[in-house]
């Protein structure tokens, strides 16, 4: 199973074994990683599952869709490596993926 490493704003790390086919958002919620709200439940419609993808993984996670881009764009604290974690599907390729959580969800 691919491992995903979540780093909280405080620096606390969570290394989670994820199911292929799940999402980075659902994996966090299922494993009680704090800092992700996911108010819309994975519909790319609330932007409360915001994460920052560690630079070296950006190529593998791909780039945001038009819809995701428009939601990210509303967040004043958005970074260049910001993604909505409900839009990143877990694959074997992402084994070792590191994502940082923002201090606040918008």
């Amino acid at each position: 199973m691919p491992r995903i490493i979540y780093i909280e704003h405080s620096g606390t790390q969570h290394e989670i074994e994820a199911d292929v086919g799940s999402t980075v958002m659902h994996t966090a919620l299922d494993n009680l990683v704090p800092g992700i709200d996911a108010d819309c439940g994975g519909e790319c419609s609330c932007a409360t599952c915001h994460v920052m993808v560690k630079e070296e993984w950006l190529a593998k996670t791909g780039s945001p869709s038009e819809t995701e881009e428009s939601m990210l764009d509303l967040n004043p604290e958005r970074q260049s490596n910001s993604r909505l974690s409900c839009q990143i599907e877990v694959t074997d390729e992402l084994d070792g993926l590191v994502v940082q959580l923002p201090e606040f969800q918008f």
């Binding site: 709200d37 996911a38 108010d39 819309c40 439940g41 419609s45 609330c46 939601m71 509303l74």
Partner: peptide, 12 residues
Amino acid sequence: RQHLSFGFGLHR
């Protein structure tokens, strides 16, 4: 937290 009161999408 999964409720509609704040709306969803661009106008959230």
